[in-house]
């Protein structure tokens, strides 16, 4: 078959959080290269169901790289070998005929496995709940154009705000740190006037929550930014540190 490849999938299977997991190897034949990687998993699941077996559980939803639901550690990389793309934006053309592709869940103390490749990322929500917002009640906002914001700052805030909360940074980090995730949100608000009044409280609360939930600390390795599907920059962490030091100095 033209433009189709065959490959093996070595996939982590784990029935429940309590049970022990293991790798299983499956074979997929003649998969067209314009198939997405998750569609290849769909094909595998259809084959498993046909055999009466349980399909591989994995998180996915929008399949266009924006919801942050998909995860997967593929061949040693969060979201696979492509850069600046999520697993759902990964296509079979990225792989070689005959290759064995290893697929694991995110590995982090803060992300317990739920089933197979699916993990619990609730800790990320909890960090946001600790302070990732502007305390503003609906209604009573002034006119949207009342405060001019420089385009440079707005664009930079937008780059930070592009974080999709997938947790790849945590999975990539040897310390299991969520520093890039926290830094993206802190930076977005640090760059905008709306975020200023609560800036100090925010950075302390979010970092404290991150530590409390069992994430590791940052040692500036940079694996997070290298693997981030949204290219969130390491400079966000510098800004976070600056914000934190300045907040602590005022204590």
């Amino acid at each position: 078959m033209d433009n189709a490849i065959s490959f093996k999938l070595k996939i982590w299977r784990q029935a429940s959080p309590q049970e022990k997991g293991r790798f299983e190897t499956y074979e997929l034949r003649d998969i067209p290269t314009d198939t997405s990687f998750l569609e290849a998993l769909d094909i595998l699941n259809e084959q498993l169901i046909e055999k009466g077996e349980e399909p591989v559980a994995f998180d996915h939803d929008c399949r266009e790289g924006i919801c942050g639901m998909c995860s997967l550690y593929i061949n040693g990389h969060p979201h696979g070998p492509a850069t600046g793309a999520t697993t759902c934006q990964l296509y079979v053309r990225r792989f070689r005929d005959g290759e064995t592709i290893t697929v694991e869940p995110w590995r982090s103390a803060a992300f317990p496995v739920i089933k197979d490749l699916m993990v619990n990322r609730n800790a990320l929500d909890q960090i946001q709940q600790a302070g990732g917002y502007v305390s503003f009640n609906t209604g009573g906002a002034q006119d949207a154009n009342a405060i001019p914001i420089s385009k440079v700052d707005a664009d930079e805030a937008m780059d930070s705000a592009s974080c999709i909360g997938c947790g790849a940074c945590v999975a990539a980090c040897k310390n299991g740190s969520a520093m890039l995730f926290v830094a993206a949100k802190v930076s977005q608000f640090a760059l905008l006037p709306q975020g200023k009044p609560e800036a100090k409280r925010r950075v302390k609360a979010m970092l404290a929550k991150m530590d409390e939930l069992g994430f590791g600390n940052c040692t500036n390795t940079g694996a997070c930014a290298a693997e981030c599907p949204k290219n969130i920059k390491l400079s966000n962490i510098s800004r976070l540190n600056r914000e934190f030091v300045s907040a602590k100095c005022r204590d």
């Binding site: 917002y133 502007v134 906002a141 914001i149 420089s150 385009k151 707005a154």
Partner: peptide, 18 residues
């Protein structure tokens, strides 16, 4: 208005307006 107040980073012109 509401979204700007929340810190939604809408695209802006060089003059700083939306």
């Amino acid at each position: 208005d509401q979204c700007v107040a929340q810190g939604v980073p809408f695209a802006r012109e060089y003059g700083g307006l939306l």
